[in-house]
Write a protein that binds this DNA or RNA. Structure first.
Length: 469
DNA sequence: GGGCTGCCGTAGCTATGTAA
DNA sequence: TTACATAGCTACGGCAGCCC
């Protein structure tokens, strides 16, 4: 039987019965009995300690037991308030005078004005009246959706207390089971005011998020966006965003869906969709094909135009699994390959081969030499060529340098070099470089430096130790 | 004014080729 | 074999122009 995740459950082999000597059994039973007694003793001491603390601080022992175990027993201990005649009478009184407005002082005044009515209600011979009132009050209580009055304040308190309890639970789980968690709580209505709640079980986890996400991660900003989305009933149609923004969101979601499906289909977490050479990089490489693509154009989502309809349809199909990756049979793969080759021969498909590096076969300058050029400016002097290239930092040292560069806010030096290279159009880069190479060949000077990368890819292993905890 | 399209530039990531 | 440098690909945002 396959599970939802597609992984068959693992059934352990049946264990063989082992005969245990009577003396061993007795010894085990004795140890178990002693452990049990020790636990009971420990428990009794803990309970006694809770009682002592309760007396000392004027609180119930359960309060300290709750703190000690890190568990909230308040909910289970909480008693449901019994129906009282006085509550019922007050409710009825308030109901009769709602036209006069609410407020605690108002109800307090009403009680004083009508106190004699309550005293009369308690008299003998009014049993039926009391029962009717209690019955009506009970029906009212039962009909309440939440059992309590729902006010902006009560909703805020529910969220506040709930988050507090969840945080405590997560802390307990972290201590006992070794988990880390991220909690984001946002409201999905405008009935009350609540700033999004963001909670990380570990400061290291929070510090790691910008690196993991690979972009500027601001937890507050992310939570604020989640809240806006939740208030819009979790539908981008209701966000009131511009057409351009909606297109971006749709494309991002399509891209995310395809990537996830590709990973699921290939079992390769590093699999990346290739829209340019799909046949070679996806179909033949993984033996899968994408079926159910509803958009009229097969292309990278970013090139799918900006008509909302087709994008929404495609996203819906992806979510409903109408559009998905399917495994190809060997025969299918062969047919697809033949069709692919035929399409190429007919000129229907243009194969985009990766260009060979323009500097293939040439000796390349090292990065450190470039850095020297930045400092002294005499980068192209022939004298430099005579000096041996400096040893390069490798391994941890080099990685540390990379991380340090990345962590530099703004990275002024790198930024300056990047901005200096601005204006070099991508499409003209190769020709510019080749022209420069030719010029360099004729003048004996080195070609101009290409734009440097400002940051390097960082794996979790590259994260500095202080970020880990 | 908003929807739609296309072009361009930038940044991040991966693949590729070379040096150590 | 590993580390590093760089080309190429992809995503994404800005901008301009056209059309309704």
């Amino acid at each position: 039987m396959a599970t939802a995740g597609g992984v068959a459950p693992y059934f352990p082999k049946e264990r063989k019965t082992i005969s245990v000597p009577a003396c061993v059994k007795q010894e085990r039973a004795r140890v178990a009995r002693e452990v049990s007694e020790a636990i009971e003793e420990w428990q009794a001491e803990t309970v006694q300690k809770a009682r002592d603390l309760g007396e000392k601080f004027g609180k119930k022992p359960e309060y300290f037991l709750s703190l000690f175990y890190g568990e909230d027993i308040k909910d289970s201990e909480r008693k449901v308030r019994a129906l009282s005649l006085r509550d019922a009478w007050l409710w009825d009184l308030a109901e009769q005078h709602t036209f006069r407005g609410g407020g605690r002082q108002q109800l307090f005044d009403l009680q004083r004005e009508h106190k004699h009515e309550y005293e009369a209600l308690k008299e003998e011979g009014k049993e039926t009246e009391r029962e009717e009132l209690l019955q009506r009050y009970k029906e009212h209580k039962d009909s309440e959706e939440q059992g309590r009055r729902v006010t902006p304040r009560s909703m805020s308190m529910v969220v506040y207390n709930g988050c507090k309890q969840i945080e405590e639970k997560l802390t307990t789980m972290r201590k006992r089971a070794g988990i880390e968690a991220v909690l984001i709580v946002v409201r999905n209505n405008m009935l009350y005011d609540l700033n999004p709640v963001v909670y990380f079980t570990s400061a290291g986890l929070e510090a790691y998020m910008p690196i993991a996400v690979g972009r500027v991660w601001d937890a507050v900003s992310v939570a604020a966006r989640c809240q806006a989305f939740a208030i819009a009933r979790c539908s981008i149609d209701n966000l009131g965003m511009s057409h351009k923004k909606m297109v971006e969101v749709l494309k991002a979601q399509i891209r995310e869906q395809i990537t996830r499906k590709l990973i699921d289909a290939t079992g390769n977490e590093r699999a990346v969709m290739n829209y340019t050479n799909t046949h070679r990089e996806i179909v033949m490489k993984y033996g899968i094909r994408l079926e159910g693509w509803s958009h009229k154009k097969w292309a990278n989502p970013s090139e799918l135009g900006s008509q909302l309809g087709p994008l929404q349809t495609l996203l819906k199909d992806l979510r409903k699994d109408k559009c998905r990756f399917v495994k190809c049979t060997p025969q299918e793969l062969q047919d697809l390959q033949e069709k692919y080759e035929k399409d190429i021969a007919d000129g229907k498909i243009e194969v985009k081969e990766r260009k060979t590096r323009c500097d293939a076969g040439q000796k390349r300058k090292q990065m450190d030499e470039d850095e020297d050029e930045d400092s002294d400016g005499a980068d192209d002097g022939s004298d430099d060529d005579e000096q041996p290239p400096p040893k390069k930092a490798r391994g941890a040292k080099a990685t540390a340098t990379k991380v340090a560069n990345k962590s530099k806010s703004g990275g002024t030096t790198k930024k300056a070099s990047a901005s200096a290279a601005k204006g070099t159009a991508k499409k003209t880069k190769a020709s510019t470089n080749s022209k420069a190479s030719n010029a360099a060949a004729s003048t004996g000077k080195q070609p101009p430096k290409p734009r440097k990368r400002k940051t390097a890819a960082i794996s979790p292993a590259d994260v500095p130790a202080q970020l880990d905890e």
